[in-house]
Computed example of a mutant assay.
Amino acid sequence: MAIIMSELPRDLVEEVLTRVPLTSLRAVRLTCKNLNDISKDGSFIKKHIVEAKKKQVNEFELIIVMNCKIYLMSVDPHSNVDPYITLKGTLFSLKDDANDHQVDDIVSVFDCDGLLLCITRDLNSRLLVWNPYFGETRWIQPRDRYHDMDVYALGYDEKKKYKIFRFVDDYYSYSYIEEEQICELEVYSFESDSWKVVLNVTPEWNIYYYHSGVSLKGNTYWYATNKVRRRGGYDVVVFLICFDFTTERFGPRLPLPFSTCNIYDIVTLSSAGEDQLAVLFHDGFTSAMGIWVTSKIEPTEVSWNKLSLADDMGMLISNIPTNDRSFFIDVKKNVAVVLDRGARYIAYIIGDKEYFEEVDLGESADLNCWPLVCSYVPSTVQIRQL
């Protein structure tokens, strides 16, 4: 293959490479230095991304995290075959070159425009930034330590400088002894390869460590609650909080389409394209479910529109109280994919004309791995090595 491909005109080679699935791209690169160089060339990457977006007119590719592994999945709403979901396989293995071993203990993933921040189980080597397209990785060492209740986010400032935000506020410590509770807020700069403390105050609200934030236009949004110790299933006030990577500060509380929830309700955030945020609310008592998408969103203001897509689908989705839920929404195609986890991973596909499909993706073998489903488009960002 390497000899034949090397004799072809470059434009034809590029055309072939744009058709290679991401899960096979690494193997193709290893066959020939010329193919490796072309696939990592800036002009080709832009062409590849354009082609990837064209494909999303009919289908879209998603990253899905299950059992500490990262998979690529495609969804085709126009397929005549049910279900119109295909698990293409695992993305190529991650390797810790410093310790010469494979990384197979990823418990959580944060997506930012095609770059993945992978949180590993091992607190000594917890953070890994990965570009699946290039296969580039970078391990991030802690300033002092990592904590098992850390909240992380990957984003960038107005100059497109990438940073990582780390936040831990152990407000719900079982000891209830103030002196033993931890509150740390730090930002890591890729430019300086260093952490710095950004705040020395304790927030007046709480972000649960198992609720992943969502990156939008470089900033990160979380759903947060008032700081109250829950004793029972009573309602708590909920709202949206944004961390601005330019100012390196949290913005004001922003309204959600609902103002309260309780421990039996499920609230999940997702991106909806490049400039919209979506929120899913599933009532734990009535099984009512709704999805809202922002009509406007900035770190200091937000407005919402409700979609009719999920109104009658809540009863069809598992109503077992769980925070292990993630979802993806394509507003233009009016399709949502909800990933849920109990004893097994289940993908619920909700579409037009009350279309509903339940797809069993396999056994849930590791309860410490938080499920994730998000869109994927190859990223042009190359991770600078130190």
Rank of each mutant, 00 (worst) to 15 (best):
A2L: 10
I3G: 07
I4C: 12
S6T: 14
L8E: 06
L8R: 06
E15L: 11
L17V: 06
L17S: 00
R19V: 07
P21G: 00
R29P: 08
C32V: 05
K33I: 02
D37R: 06
I38R: 07
I38D: 04
K40F: 04
G42T: 10
S43L: 12
I45R: 05
K46C: 11
V50N: 09
E51W: 09
V57R: 13
V57G: 08
L62K: 06
L62C: 12
L62W: 05
I63A: 03
I63C: 12
Y71N: 10
L72A: 10
M73G: 01
V75G: 02
H78V: 10
S79Q: 03
N80L: 12
V81Y: 12
P83L: 03
Y84S: 14
L87M: 15
L94V: 03
A98M: 08
D104Y: 09
I106L: 04
V109C: 15
V109F: 06
D113I: 01
I119W: 00
L123F: 05
N124Q: 09
S125N: 11
L128N: 02
P132S: 05
Y133W: 13
F134Y: 15
Q141K: 11
Y146P: 02
Y146E: 01
H147I: 06
G155V: 02
Y156Q: 04
K159S: 13
K161Q: 13
Y162Q: 00
I164Q: 02
F165K: 05
R166F: 01
F167I: 02
V168P: 00
V168M: 03
Y172L: 12
C183S: 12
F190S: 01
S192V: 10
D193S: 09
K196L: 04
V198N: 03
N200K: 14
I207E: 02
Y209E: 06
G213V: 01
G213P: 00
S215D: 04
K217L: 11
N219K: 07
T220K: 01
N226F: 05
G233N: 14
F239L: 08
D244W: 08
T247R: 12
E248C: 03
F250M: 09
S259D: 12
N262I: 02
A272I: 02
E274G: 10
Q276T: 05
Q276L: 03
F281K: 13
D283S: 09
G290C: 13
T294P: 00
T294A: 00
K296W: 09
E298C: 10
T300F: 14
E301C: 14
W304H: 04
N305L: 14
K306P: 11
L307W: 11
S308F: 14
D311E: 15
D311G: 08
G314F: 01
M315L: 13
M315H: 14
L316Y: 15
S326V: 03
F327R: 01
I329K: 03
V331G: 02
K332S: 15
V338L: 11
R341Q: 15
R344N: 15
A347C: 07
Y348L: 03
G351M: 09
K353T: 15
K353V: 15
F356P: 07
E358Q: 15
L372E: 01
T380Y: 07
V381T: 13
